[in-house]
Design a protein around this nucleic acid. Structure first.
Length: 461
RNA sequence: GGCCCCGUCGUCUAGCGGUUAGGAUCCAUGGUUUUCAUCCAUGUUACAGGAGUUCAAUUCUCCUCGGGGUCACCA
């Protein structure tokens, strides 16, 4: 069975880049009827927090990306790692290194000064004497000194590294006994049965080290997919300093999970010319073979378009529910249908849609100055009076077409163009020059509120 | 600096030797609309450069240039 994983380090919120690799992993697992598991890499006690873990989980929940099985927390697996370290030590594949931090620093500085690559010199690789006193040793793994390491990568193709270029006996356990990243990742991926690893491009150069561990322990090496980075507008790796990279910030801004996911799936991946993907389509169409090889720049123009698209195409019932986090309770509003019908293709975000709705439902307390100048000239007040009288005289007014009929009557009786009544009426009802069709607006407001707004405008001008 | 990856419109991308280099977004113009938005139509804009291979290179190879990533007792 195909098993993929997402393995965030809980040092903060869930980041847009992390979400994309998570999405890819999720989709690939789902497409293959496999599993998508979650592992929290919280071994760095100083930098990790429970809040960060919760924030990540909250984001997954919002987006509807559910993981399979129990969440694995690395912080609870120290004994497991220690066991494998012991195994390597006993097999002579790893050793204790007593080099002091000062000596190590010194070594690096010398190497840099000589323009050599910095690496551990293997001083304790075959050490047999009495260890120096007062130094808690680290454990280093015996890495191959020559030969080639080939990373089988589904995105980049096979990438080969020369051992002498990149490897040294790297640390697998710190002096306090805790295991390091490249070691625990390997152990966990193996133990969790992960056979396809999707992660950011930035891990590609770590991979040979992990392969060293896989091989030392006799584990099968998984298939890798190193997904290109997402860059900021400056062309650098997207980081937490780049503004809105917190996934949950998109919820606050009024983006739908569907739009965000659709946007991200198309960032670095494509399926011909298709732009719109439902979750089901993503699950059946996603294939890492179609992942792009080059980095992409993060730019949200298209996200706005997608979000607007999904809002337009949502049912009103669905929208009414999505709107409640933005302070708008519409679920039982009697004009809900017509209201959302006319407003949903005018908003790029749910937040905007909520604001637009509130705006219409609120009696204008002031009128846009320019709009007044333009609209309330000539016979405007006379026309408004005439139209107001029509409404007063008609008791049953419900549908937009009911109001439209009255407008038509005024237009033909007074022998004026539609614009003559439209402009002043719009300003009277909405306080400004733009907005949805007036017949719909009046149907939403109802007969009473419409009369009030017209009367208000007349007395104010 | 060493090693590794990458290079098609501003942006996201299609292309897998022969195409008028396609789509989307953005922008502009026009149409629809009493207005605005939506919608529809039209338009501007791209193969980093240089060698080679080939009858033919955006596509294959090499070099140059450019960009990015990574080199910890962080993950």
């Amino acid at each position: 069975m195909l098993i993929t994983r997402f393995a965030p380090s809980p040092t903060g919120y869930l980041h847009i880049g992390g979400l994309r690799t998570a999405l890819f992993s999720y989709l690939w697992a789902k497409k293959n009827n496999g599993k998508f598991v979650l592992r929290i890499e919280d071994t760095d006690k100083a930098r990790n927090s429970k809040e960060a873990t919760d924030a990540i989980l909250e984001a997954f929940e919002w987006l509807g990306l559910e993981h399979d099985g129990e969440i694995v927390y690395q912080s609870q697996r120290d004994e497991i790692y220690a066991g494998y370290i012991k195994e390597l030590l006993e097999a002579g594949k790893a050793y204790k290194c007593y080099m002091s931090k000062e000596e190590l620093t010194q070594l690096r500085e010398t190497q840099m000064a000589n323009n050599e690559r910095t690496m551990y010199n293997g001083k304790y690789r075959d050490f047999e004497g009495t260890p120096p006193k007062g130094i808690e040793p680290v454990i280093r793994i015996k890495a191959p000194l020559s030969g080639e390491i080939i990373v089988k990568d589904g995105v980049k193709g096979d990438v080969s590294f020369k051992a002498e270029d990149i490897l040294d006996d790297f640390v697998i356990a710190r002096s306090d006994g805790s295991a390091t990243y490249n070691f625990v990742v390997t152990i966990d991926d193996h133990l969790m049965g992960i056979n396809e690893v999707m992660r950011g491009d930035d891990h590609l150069s770590n991979t040979p080290k992990q392969i060293v561990v896989y091989e030392a322990l006799g584990f099968d090496v998984p298939m890798f997919y190193h997904v290109p980075m997402i860059h900021n507008s400056a062309g650098k790796k997207l980081s937490k300093r780049d503004g809105a990279t917190d996934v949950m910030a998109y919820k606050e801004m009024g983006y739908t999970p569907q739009a965000l996911l659709n946007f991200l799936v198309r960032l670095g991946w494509s399926h011909g010319d298709q732009e719109i993907f439902s979750m089901d389509e993503m699950k059946t169409l996603f294939d890492p073979q179609d992942i792009n090889k080059s980095a992409s720049i993060y730019n949200t123009q298209k996200l706005d378009w997608l979000n607007a698209h999904y809002i337009k195409n949502s049912s009103n019932t669905e929208l009414a529910e999505l709107l409640s986090p933005y302070g708008l309770v519409l679920t039982s509003h009697d004009k809900k249908e017509i209201l959302l019908d006319v407003l949903k293709d005018r908003a790029k975000t749910l937040k905007e849609l909520a604001e637009l709705t509130k705006e219409i439902l609120t009696t204008p307390s002031s009128y846009d100055e320019k709009a007044v100048k333009k609209a309330f000239k000539g016979d405007a007040i006379k026309i408004l009076n005439a139209f107001g009288a029509k409404i007063t005289a008609t008791k049953e007014l419900h549908l937009p077409s009911d109001y439209h009929t009255l407008m038509e009557q005024v237009v033909s009786e007074m022998e004026i163009g539609f614009g003559k009544i439209g402009q002043p009426l719009r300003v009277a009802l909405l306080g400004k020059m733009s907005g949805p069709g007036l017949d719909s607006v009046m149907a939403i407001l109802g007969r009473d509120e419409t009369m009030i707004r017209i009367a208000n405008a007349i007395s104010a001008h």
